[in-house]
Design a protein around this nucleic acid. Structure first.
Lengths: 172, 172
DNA sequence: AGCATTTGATTAGTCTCCTAACTATATGGG
DNA sequence: CCCATATAGTTAGGAGACTAATCAAATGCT
């Protein structure tokens, strides 16, 4: 009776070992496993988050934009939003199209700079954020509940150091 | 001179605190930070991985499909691929279209089941995997290098427990 | 044996993200 | 002062993922 690996244990260490051995490489399978599991976890979490936000008629990107706007007291240019969200300006244009259609934000031309726009959080947008906050943050907390306070600190440290290693994937 | 937070430290604990306080919620800001940083890390890693694979004319999804096919000794049905990759069959159809166009796999009708197809890794597909393996695994290892062996073990444990908590975002 | 259900694969349509190209406005060096 | 360059925003087109609908083949229940 083969023990099926649980989805959070996919991919397995053995898979990593086989793949490395197949090419006769001198690589630490556990290091590969860390990288691959983090990718898998990111993808799974990303999908779950989209499902979560769809309950409120939002996507992860739209929620993040609204939250960022609220952090900025309700006004910010699309370029600034793109920079703080870490997405392209084209993506912000798309997010704003949806949010404006739903009446959660509106675009005003900037007074100082004729090229620029100002995105304003509407009353309806603020209300939406207020309404979904308890459930949203409650579920985030529930997700992280299995970790103790010390474990959370350790996790943030280790994750930060991995994120700092990401450029190794892409540089020169 | 305000110290700009480094990108791996975005979002900050203060941002989480403000957002929670704004709605008068009783939530642990550090727990929220863990959730939000993991999402951000997943997104960043996902993008970096796409850049990484684009050097070889592949995407992350196509690479994973090829690797899975190789683990299965070069033959598998699209449905099996979808199940083991954790994506929909429609997604596999799209990945196979690209891979077949590039001559890395081919589709044969199944002998046993007239509805089914068999995806076969071509010699060219196997060669591609062999060629990219050293750089691919080397870069993965470089990314994880900042963590010691013990830290990797701890990280895998904590990450696994967080992944097990993901359903809290979506259930009922 | 025949018909309903299930399963495998594809297609169509949506969503988010990307890059590249375009338009309009601002800025700064000669 | 004017023209080159840079910046803001949008548009166009692509890739990967999803769901839902479709079609063919296999299974299985009477």
């Amino acid at each position: 009776m083969a023990q099926e690996p649980r989805p959070e244990e996919i991919p397995t260490l053995d898979q990593a070992r086989y793949q490395i051995r197949r090419y006769g490489l001198d690589v630490d399978p556990q290091a590969v496993l860390v990288a691959v599991r983090l990718m898998a976890a990111g993808a799974r979490l990303g999908q779950a988050v989209e499902v979560h936000f769809s309950r409120f008629g939002l996507s992860a990107g739209r929620y993040r934009l609204l939250a960022d706007l609220e952090d900025a007291d309700g006004e910010k240019s699309p370029s600034q939003l793109a920079a703080s969200l870490g997405v392209s300006r084209a993506t912000v244009t798309g997010l704003l199209d949806g949010l404006e259609r739903d009446g959660l934000v509106l675009r005003r031309p900037s007074a100082e700079d004729g090229r620029s726009a100002v995105v304003v959080l509407t009353a309806r947008g603020a209300r939406k954020m207020r309404e979904l906050a308890p459930e949203h943050f409650g579920r985030l907390q529930a997700m992280v509940d299995p970790l103790s306070a010390e474990e959370r600190t350790v996790f943030l440290d280790l994750l930060g150091r991995l994120v700092r290693g990401i450029p190794a994937l892409t540089q020169d």
